[in-house]
Amino acid sequence: MTMPRQDTAFQGLGDSRSSVRLKAALAVGTTPDPRFVDGLVERCAVEPDFYVRDMLTWALTRHPASMTVPKLVEELRSERAQARSQALHTLSKIGDRGAWPAITRELLTDADDEVARSAWRTAVVLVPDDEKPGLATVLATQFGRGERETQVSLSRALVALGEVIVPALRAAMTDPDPRVRQHAIATERLSRDPEAGFEYAIGEAKRIMALGPTSQEAHGEEALGSAGQEVLGSEGREG
């Protein structure tokens, strides 16, 4: 008896060659089949190739959210960092706001940078308007974390939230930790001019900090006084 084409394609996800796995994920997504949802989610947790993982995410978005979202939410409790990160990434692509309660503080502050970055991006997509201030407060606890890539992700997530970030920025710009202050100042610069880029924003932050506390306080008052209007204009554009 000949195996159905979808079944053959699905089996290809376990092939040792990434090119075969990529084609298999494409085939499964092209012809969605509810039987494969569990397997797609499981494969996301272990797939080593970035492009195949991205195709797996696409394949999952081709299936009904009612089937995929509960499975992905379960993965957020996995001990495997890649499982949590990829589930978050896929939830952000699906965009079902019913998954918002699953984006916990634990995920937003996850010890694994990739998981945390995925959580920040997903949270910004799913957060209800009335919970944006609380999200901004949690994200602000991560100022100064990690290397450039991680800091860029956090700044972009905060800027995307709009004017609700002002109180959190104000507090962080006077934090005793210089890494926190620098990152917060750079984020404020991005909120006013996203097209300037993160390197420029960090450079400006270093310059302001080098001038001393008085300059930082003056800059903070001037910048945040008008941030309510300016940060709104920055939404949707990333530096």
Results as ranks from 00 to 15, higher is better:
223 A>H: 08
147 E>G: 01
219 H>E: 09
69 V>K: 05
68 T>F: 10
154 L>F: 11
179 R>M: 12
198 F>H: 13
96 D>L: 04
56 L>V: 06
145 R>S: 03
141 T>Q: 14
46 V>A: 10
64 P>Y: 03
86 Q>I: 02
1 M>P: 14
76 L>W: 09
79 E>C: 05
83 A>T: 09
124 V>Q: 04
158 L>W: 06
78 S>A: 14
115 V>M: 06
160 A>N: 07
228 G>Y: 14
117 R>P: 05
203 G>F: 05
165 I>M: 08
168 A>I: 06
155 S>K: 03
162 G>F: 11
149 E>D: 12
7 D>M: 07
210 A>M: 06
2 T>G: 00
100 W>A: 00
58 W>H: 12
2 T>P: 15
203 G>P: 13
122 T>N: 05
197 G>D: 08
218 A>F: 10
185 I>D: 00
230 E>Y: 14
101 P>W: 02
229 Q>L: 10
184 A>C: 09
94 I>Y: 07
31 T>N: 14
141 T>I: 01
154 L>G: 07
124 V>N: 07
186 A>P: 09
60 L>Q: 07
49 D>L: 05
116 A>I: 03
14 G>V: 02
225 G>R: 13
157 A>P: 14
111 A>G: 13
149 E>N: 11
120 W>K: 02
191 S>G: 15
201 A>D: 09
61 T>A: 01
16 S>T: 10
174 T>S: 15
134 G>L: 04
232 L>F: 09
154 L>W: 07
35 R>V: 06
118 S>T: 02
95 G>L: 03
72 L>T: 06
190 L>I: 08
183 H>F: 10
10 F>G: 00
33 D>E: 11
170 R>T: 13
22 L>W: 15
221 E>D: 15
147 E>Y: 10
29 G>R: 10
194 P>M: 00
211 L>Q: 15
158 L>T: 02
239 G>H: 12
120 W>T: 01
171 A>L: 13
26 L>G: 02
105 R>A: 00
120 W>G: 03
113 D>G: 06
39 G>I: 04
227 A>T: 06
165 I>H: 04
86 Q>E: 15
152 V>W: 12
101 P>S: 01
133 P>N: 01
30 T>M: 10
18 S>Y: 13
223 A>W: 06
132 K>Q: 08
24 A>H: 11
55 M>T: 08
131 E>I: 00
112 D>L: 01
